[in-house]
Computed example of a mutant assay.
Amino acid sequence: MISHLFLNKTKSLTPSASLQVDKNGFEFLIIEHKKLAAAFTLHGGHLIHFQPVNQAPIIWLSKTAIFDDQKAIRGGVPICWPWFGPASPELGGNLPSHGFARTSKWSIGNIEETEEGVELELKLVSDEKTLAMWPYQFELTLKASLTEQLQLQLITENKGTQNFTYRSALHTYLNIGTPEAVKVSGLNETFANSLQNKQLETGDGSLAIDQAIDSIYNKAQGEIQLEDQQLQRTLTITNTGNDSEVVWSPWIEGATAFADMPDDGYQTMLCIESTITRSEGHFVSSGEQHILSTLIK
């Protein structure tokens, strides 16, 4: 899934983990374990690939994704933080959509590996640049547990003396066989349809993929399942710490408008995101932390 990137190893970190670069020097953290393969970029703390051995990839990455230090990467699991969508007007103008975490440089924390897989941490800490956009001190940790299943925990810690609220998304692009072979179930029955001015609608908690979708579902009561007849598998998604799930497919009109997605890219991806989207956000008092997570198996 990422062989087209033509990476060269620059440093071994553990028997399974290494730093690698592409022809432009863009840096990747690559995991090559006997049970799985995975890849992250330090730009954005961004998981771009996850594939258990002898399975199709679970995470989708655009073949025309742009890797630089400027924009978010198309595919994988972008981290939208500390806001989702546009920034609140009181923060000022000209702020990046979906926050600054997905375009910031993260650092590598602990990496531990076992017979079953790898656990690792990536970190982002407030500095002068982030404080100019969002006036709060924080430490943000992405904790990834990579085995035959994938768990991502986004840990937001308030390191300052002021309380704050935040909105966020683990904007997960899932790899699918083809839209007509996919059915989603286990969603909440109530959702806001962003393609219809966030009109509130109700359904039966299931979804077929046959057109553009951009919906904010109230938090699911349990597991969400993505049944894929072409890939002959069912993915089970369990989200915690969230208030909603966003389901998104750009369909052909959206895909052709993106410079960093092939025109047929919509045929092999579907986003089911663990999100905090309510306008009031999630409150984190001084010295406390909150965890937004997704588990995919």
Rank of each mutant, 00 (worst) to 15 (best):
F6Y: 05
D22T: 14
K23W: 06
N24H: 12
F28V: 07
L29H: 13
H33F: 10
T41P: 01
L42N: 12
G45S: 08
I48M: 01
P57I: 13
L61Y: 06
L61T: 05
S62Q: 12
T64D: 09
D69N: 12
V77H: 02
E90G: 08
P96A: 07
S104C: 13
I108P: 03
G109D: 02
T114R: 12
E119N: 14
D127T: 03
E128F: 10
K129I: 07
K129N: 08
T130S: 11
Q137I: 02
L140P: 03
Q151L: 14
L152K: 02
Q153W: 03
I155T: 08
Y166V: 04
I176R: 06
I176M: 02
I176T: 05
G177Y: 07
G177L: 07
T178L: 07
V184I: 15
N188P: 05
N188F: 03
A192M: 09
K198P: 00
G203T: 01
D204G: 07
G205C: 10
L207N: 05
L207P: 04
L207C: 14
I209W: 03
A212C: 05
I213M: 00
S215M: 00
K219Y: 03
E223D: 06
Q225N: 12
Q232E: 14
T236F: 05
T240V: 03
G241W: 08
V247W: 00
P250F: 08
E253G: 08
E253D: 13
T256C: 09
A257H: 10
F258S: 11
F258T: 04
G265R: 03
S274Y: 07
T277Q: 04
R278W: 00
S279L: 15
G281P: 12
F283S: 14
V284P: 08
S285M: 10
K297Y: 07
